[in-house]
C-alpha cells in the first residue's frame, strides 16, 4: 500500500443495490446509498451535501444562503444544504464539478439545523478541513464529536462555476440547462445533453479553467475521509470504495450486512487500483512541483506554502 492512496482498511468496487439511486447517481451511488442507510439506521441525523441552486431556492430553510440572486436561474450551480430525507438526498445526487463549500455548514448543522450526528460529503481538501477542525477546533465549538460520517470523493481538481459555463456553453456548445450529466473520465470531460447528445472535450482544454487553489493539493483519494469513493478504477456504473477509519469500517460493514451494496473485489475489476495509483501519483507529483515553483516564484520572494 503506497502513501498516495492513504491508509485504508479495505477497498472494493461497489454499486448500490437500489435501482432508484442508481438512476440519479453519478456512478455507483455510493454516497447517496451510504447516507440513506446511515439516516435510516440513526447513524446520522442529516447530511451536508451539494444540492443545486434550484433546490436551495425551493427549500431555503435547508441551505446556507449567500448573497446571490436566487431568482436568477443558474443550472449546475451547487449550494451546500442539510438534507434529512432520502428524497432530498436523491434530489442532490450527482457530481456538479464546481465549488460547493460544504464545510461552511458544519457548525450550523449542529446549531439551527439541530443535528447531533452529522454526515458530510466533500472533496479531499474538505476532508482535510474537517479533520483539522476536529483536532484544532478554533471556531468549531462542540462540532468535532458531532461528525458521525465523513465521505470523501476522489478529486483531481475543481472548477469555479464560471469555468463550467465556459466549458459547457463555449467549448461544448451546449446550454447549461440542457445538460443531463457531466463527467470526467477516460481522459476526457464529457457533457451529456438531455436529448441524448454527447460532447467530449480533451482535458487539455479544461486545464486553464481549473481553480488555482487545487494546484497545491496533495490528496487525490480523500485520505482523511471515513469512506472515500470515486469512479476511477472501477467499471462504468461502479465506484471504487476505500474504507479508511474505524467509523467508516463500522458503517460500511453494517451497510454491507443490510444488502445496500453489491461489490466486486478490486483486484478482479479493470482498470483497478493500478489506474487509481497512477492518477494519484500524477496529481501529487504535479502539485509538489507547483509547490516547489511557488518557493522561487518571484525575485527573492516566495509564494506562501500552507504545509508545515
Amino acid at each position: 500500500m503506497g502513501a498516495e492512496l492513504g491508509n485504508y482498511k479495505s477497498c472494493v468496487s461497489a454499486r448500490s443495490t437500489d435501482k432508484e439511486i442508481l438512476r440519479h447517481a453519478q456512478d455507483g451511488g455510493i454516497v447517496t446509498q451510504l447516507f440513506g442507510f446511515a439516516l435510516d439506521e440513526g447513524i446520522i441525523d442529516g447530511a451536508i451535501v451539494a444540492a443545486t441552486k434550484e433546490f436551495a431556492h425551493k427549500h431555503p430553510e435547508k441551505a446556507m444562503m449567500d448573497n446571490s440572486n436566487m431568482e436568477f436561474h443558474e443550472p449546475w450551480r451547487p449550494i451546500p444544504v442539510v438534507v434529512t430525507t432520502k428524497a432530498d438526498m436523491l434530489a442532490a445526487a450527482g457530481t456538479k464539478y464546481n465549488i460547493s463549500p460544504n464545510v461552511s455548514l458544519i457548525k450550523e448543522a449542529t446549531r439551527s439545523f439541530g443535528l447531533d450526528k452529522v454526515g458530510i460529503v466533500g472533496t479531499p481538501c474538505q476532508m482535510q478541513a474537517v479533520r483539522k477542525g476536529q483536532l484544532y477546533p478554533i471556531g468549531l465549538r462542540d462540532v468535532g464529536s458531532s461528525i458521525a460520517l465523513a465521505v470523501g470523493i476522489f478529486c483531481m481538481e475543481n472548477f469555479p462555476y464560471q469555468s463550467i459555463i465556459q466549458l459547457v456553453e463555449d467549448h461544448a456548445a451546449m446550454k447549461m440547462e440542457s445538460v443531463r450529466k457531466m463527467e470526467i473520465g477516460k481522459g476526457k470531460f464529457w457533457v451529456y445533453g438531455k436529448r441524448g447528445q454527447v460532447v467530449q472535450l480533451p482535458l487539455k482544454v479544461t486545464h486553464k479553467y481549473e481553480q488555482p487553489g487545487c494546484h497545491v493539493c496533495l490528496d487525490y483519494v480523500a485520505n482523511l475521509a471515513d469512506v472515500s469513493t470515486g469512479s476511477v478504477g472501477s467499471p462504468d456504473g461502479w465506484s471504487t470504495v476505500f474504507v479508511r477509519s474505524k467509523i467508516g469500517d463500522s458503517v460500511w460493514g453494517k451497510a454491507m450486512a443490510a444488502g445496500c451494496f453489491e461489490t466486486q473485489p478490486i483486484e478482479k475489476v479493470k482498470p483497478g487500483l493500478e489506474l487509481v495509483t497512477k492518477l494519484a501519483n500524477e496529481k501529487i507529483t504535479k502539485n509538489k512541483k507547483t509547490l516547489e515553483e511557488r518557493a522561487t516564484f518571484g525575485v527573492g520572494k516566495a509564494l506562501r506554502n500552507p504545509y508545515i
Partner: peptide, 25 residues
C-alpha cells in the same frame, strides 16, 4: 496567494457570521 479552494471552513468558524461564500469563495 492562490491557495483558496472553497471548502467553507472560514464561514463555519466565524463567530459573528460575517462570512458567506459567493460562488464558492
Amino acid at each position: 496567494q492562490g491557495l483558496c479552494m472553497g471548502c467553507g471552513s472560514c464561514a463555519a468558524a466565524c463567530p459573528v457570521r460575517a462570512i458567506t461564500h459567493e460562488y464558492g469563495k
